[in-house]
Amino acid sequence: MSDSQQVEERVQEFSRKTAELKTMLGRVVVGQAEIIDGVLGCLLADSHVLLEGVPGLGKTLLIRTLAQALRVPFSRIQFTPDLMPSDILGTTILEEGPGGALRSEFRKGPIFSSIVLADEINRATPKTQSALLEAMQEHRVTMAGTTYELGSPYFVLATQNPLEMEGTYPLPEAQLDRFLMKLIVPFPSHEELHEILFRTTQNGTVNVEPVWSQNDVLSCQRMVRELPVARFVKEYAIRLLRATHPRLEGASAKVRRFVLSGASPRGAQALVLGAKARALLSGRAAVSIEDVRAVALPALRHRILLNFEGEAEGILRDDLILDLIETVAVPKEP
C-alpha cells in the first residue's frame, strides 16, 4: 500500500469515526451543528473551549453527551461565588494509617478528569478561576509543592451566561487566552425547537453509547497535529493575527481606533489548529485559507481587547474580525 493510499485510508477512517460521533451527539442535541464541529475541533486540537450562551440552549447537555460518547472520565463543576480552589483541585487530608499513624493524603478534585465541564465559570471568584490556569495550559496541578499530571486527553469545556452579569467575575484575559475557541451558542431555529419539544416532553430516554475510546481521541489528536499546513496558509494566519494589533503594520483604521490590544501568539496557534481540525472534520487532508477564515471568529473573538472608545461605541469584536477577513491579503507566493 502506497503512502497516499495509507493517508487516504486514515483520512477516510477519521471522517467515518467523526461522523459516527456526530451522529451519536445528534441523538441528544438538536441542531447546533456548528457548535458541535467547534467543540470537536477543540477536542481534536487538544485544547479547550468556552461556550457562551443564554441558559437552556443545551450547552451542558452537549458536553455531557460528548463525555458519554467518548467513554472517558467526565466531571462537572458548577462554579459559584463561594467555590474555593481546593473544591476544584482537591485537598490534602490527614488519614490514619494501618499502624495508627497519621499521614496526609491528597484527594483529587473534579479537575482530575479527561473532560471537565466548568459550568458558569464566570460565577466563581478570580482566585478560583485562576486555579484552572495551570491545569488548562500545562495539563498538571501543583499542590503543596507536588505536581500531579492530569493525563490525556484533557479537555475543559467552560460555559458562561452573557446576560446575568450581576455577581459574576468576567474571566481575566490570561484565562480567556487559554481557550482555543469561544463559541457563541445560537438560539435554536423554529424547526429545531419543534424537535426539542418532541424529544423532551415525552416519555423515553435516549441511550448514548460510547463510540470513541480514549486512544481514539488521542490518535485523532495526533493526526490533527501531523497534518501539514502550507507556508502560505500559516503566513495568512500570521497576517490575520498581526492585523488585530493596533500598533502593528497592516492594522485597519477601525482596529487602530477601537482596539486596545490584539490577539496573542496563541491566537495564531488557535487559527492553525482550528483550521487543521476543520479540514479533517471535512474529510480533507489539505488545510486551506478558507479553513483559517472559517475558524477566525471563534479563535480570535475572545483575544481582542477593545479600548474605551470601542466599548463606548458598542463595537462588536466579530465585526472587526469579519472586516479583517475581508481586507487581509492572501499571500501570492507559496
Binding site: 502506497s2 503512502d3 469515526k17 470513541w212 486512544n215 481514539d216 488521542l218 485523532c220 495526533r222 493526526m223
Partner: peptide
C-alpha cells in the same frame, strides 16, 4: 501513531 488506535501509522517512504 499509537498502536492499536483508530489509525495505523508507518507510512512508506517517498515514491
Amino acid at each position: 501513531l499509537v498502536q492499536g488506535g483508530l489509525l495505523q501509522d508507518g507510512l512508506a517512504q517517498d515514491r
